[in-house]
Simulated scan of single mutants.
Amino acid sequence: MHCSYFDAAACRSCTQMGVPYAEQLAGKQRHCEMLLAPHTELEWLLPVGSQESGFRNKAKMVVGGTAQDPTIGILDADGQGVDLRECGVCSPGLLDCFPVLAGFISQARLTPYDVPQRRGELKHIIITESPDGEVMLRLVLRSEQLLPRIRKHLPSLLAALPQVKVVSVNLHPEHKAVLEGDREILLTEQSTLRMRVNGLDLHLRPQSFFQTNTPMAAALYRQGREWVDELDPASVWDLYCGVGGFALHCAGPGRDVTGIETSREAIVSAKLSSKEAGLERVGFQAGDATAFALGADRSPELVIVNPPRRGIGKELCGWLESSDVQHVVYSSCNAQSLARDLAALPSFTARRARVLDMFPQTMHYEVMVLLERAG
Rank of each mutant, 00 (worst) to 15 (best):
M216G: 00
H249S: 09
F359M: 01
M358H: 12
Q29G: 06
E23N: 09
K314E: 13
A108D: 03
R351V: 09
A26Y: 03
T214C: 02
R205F: 10
L25W: 04
P20G: 00
S130Y: 07
K60Y: 13
P308G: 07
G313L: 10
D229N: 14
A177H: 15
E366A: 06
S208Q: 06
L137R: 03
A234T: 14
L338A: 06
L94D: 00
A343K: 14
V166P: 02
A217M: 12
L110K: 05
A10G: 10
Q24Y: 00
S156Q: 15
G49K: 02
L231D: 14
P70T: 00
A251W: 04
T214F: 02
S143D: 13
C14I: 04
S332T: 15
G245C: 06
Q285M: 08
C11K: 00
A37F: 11
F210A: 09
H153G: 06
L345V: 05
V166K: 05
A102T: 04
P92K: 07
P20E: 00
G18N: 03
L42D: 09
R225Y: 10
T349S: 12
Y365G: 11
M136Y: 11
L35Q: 07
A277K: 08
K314F: 05
Q117T: 08
A339I: 06
S50T: 05
D229F: 13
K58F: 07
G283Q: 15
V89W: 05
L179P: 09
V329C: 02
Q326F: 10
L158P: 04
W227G: 01
D324S: 15
L157T: 00
F359D: 01
I150W: 02
G254N: 11
G64I: 09
D7R: 00
R194A: 15
F98P: 01
S337C: 06
H249Y: 07
C11L: 01
C317W: 01
P360Q: 07
Q117E: 13
R298S: 15
R310L: 10
T15E: 00
S235H: 12
P155V: 02
V236G: 07
R138A: 12
P173G: 11
M195D: 05
A289N: 03
P99Y: 02
E366S: 06
Q326Y: 06
P116R: 05
A266L: 01
V355D: 10
K176E: 15
A10R: 03
L248E: 03
D69A: 15
R309I: 03
W227T: 05
L187S: 10
L294Q: 14
L239I: 12
W319E: 08
L231E: 14
V197P: 01
L95N: 07
F246D: 01
K314S: 10
A26E: 07
G54Q: 04
G254V: 11
M1Q: 09
P307H: 10
A353T: 11
Q326T: 15
G245E: 04
E301A: 13
D201H: 06
K152Y: 15
C333Q: 02
F348W: 08
D201V: 04
T111E: 05
Q117M: 13
V100F: 09
P300A: 10
H203D: 08
E174S: 11
R222D: 11
V89N: 00
R151Q: 15
D341R: 04
P112D: 08
P360S: 10
D114P: 02
R354V: 13
